[in-house]
C-alpha cells in the first residue's frame, strides 16, 4: 500500500458520500425521523411556553435517535453487503474509521442545523445564548458520531447487529446526554452559564477523544 493515510481517508469519505447519494433511503430515513420528531414536539407543546430544560431534553432526544439510527449503519452495511473484505484490502483501519466518521459528522451537522431551524420555527423556545448553543451543538455532533461509530464498528460482525448496535450505543451515550442537556438548557434560558460552559467544553472534549481513540479500538476488531 503506497497511498498516504490522508488519501485513504478522503477516498473512504468519497465512497461514503457516493453510497449515501446513490441510496437516498438511509438519508431520507434520518431526515424524516428528525422532522417528524420535531413536528411531534411542536404539536405537543402547542400554545405553551417551553422551558429551557424541557426544550433541551426534547431536542437532545431527537438528536440522539437520529444519530443512533443513522451512524452505526455505515459499519453495519459493509457486513450486510459483503463489502467489508474489499475495504480491508483497500484501506487501513484508521483511515476507514476517520473517513466514515467525517461523513457521519457532515451528515449529523446538517441534521442538527436543520433540526435547530425547524425547532425554533415550530416551537415557542427562545435562544438566549447562541455561542453556548453553537458550542454545545458542535460538541454533541462530534460526541454522538464518535460514540455511535464505535458501537457500530463493534457490533458490525455480530449476529443481530442492527439491534445490538443501538443497544450497545446507548450506555456509551449516557455521559454525552448529561453534558449535552446541561449546555443546551442554559443556552435556551434555564440554568447557570458557569455550569453550562464547562459542560459544553466537556462535550467537545469527549467527542474529540472518542474520534481520536476510536481508530485504535476499531483496528483491534476490524482485522479479525
Amino acid at each position: 500500500m503506497n497511498s498516504g493515510w490522508m488519501t485513504e481517508v478522503l477516498a473512504v469519505l468519497r465512497k461514503e458520500a457516493r453510497v449515501d447519494v446513490r441510496d437516498l433511503g438511509s438519508l431520507l430515513t434520518v431526515a424524516l425521523f428528525s422532522g417528524v420528531t420535531i413536528f411531534a414536539i411542536s404539536v405537543a407543546s402547542f400554545n405553551q411556553q417551553l422551558k429551557g430544560g424541557i426544550a433541551a431534553g426534547l431536542l437532545w432526544v431527537a438528536l440522539l435517535f437520529a444519530a443512533v439510527i443513522g451512524q452505526p449503519r455505515r459499519f453495519l452495511t459493509e457486513e450486510d453487503q459483503g463489502t467489508s473484505d474489499l475495504l480491508r484490502l483497500l484501506a487501513r483501519p484508521h483511515a476507514i474509521f476517520w473517513g466514515k466518521c467525517l461523513m457521519g459528522i457532515l451528515e449529523m451537522a446538517v441534521t442538527a442545523v436543520a433540526m435547530t431551524l425547524f425547532f425554533f420555527l415550530l416551537t415557542s423556545a427562545t435562544l438566549k445564548d447562541p455561542g453556548l448553543y453553537a458550542l454545545g451543538l458542535t460538541g454533541s455532533v462530534l460526541a454522538l458520531v464518535g460514540a455511535t461509530s464505535i458501537s457500530g464498528a463493534l457490533a458490525a460482525s455480530a449476529r443481530n447487529r442492527s439491534t445490538l448496535a443501538a443497544a450497545v450505543a446507548l450506555p456509551l451515550l449516557v455521559p454525552i446526554i448529561f453534558f449535552g442537556i446541561a449546555s443546551l438548557r442554559t443556552s435556551l434560558g434555564e440554568g447557570l452559564p458557569e455550569n453550562a460552559w464547562p459542560a459544553a467544553w466537556g462535550l467537545l472534549g469527549y467527542g474529540i477523544a472518542s474520534i481520536i481513540t476510536g481508530p485504535w479500538i476499531f483496528s483491534a476488531v476490524w482485522r479479525r
Binding site: I150, L154, L164, L172, V221, R224
Partner: peptide, 28 residues
C-alpha cells in the same frame, strides 16, 4: 451491554476482541 455484545459472537477471538473494544470505549 457488554454481556449482550459477548453473546452475539460465536467465534471466541472475535468475541474477545469486540467485547474488549467495548470495555475500552466504556472506560471514560
Amino acid at each position: 451491554g457488554y454481556f449482550a455484545l459477548r453473546s452475539a459472537f460465536s467465534d471466541n477471538e472475535k468475541r474477545a476482541a469486540n467485547s474488549g473494544g467495548y470495555l475500552m470505549a466504556a472506560l471514560l
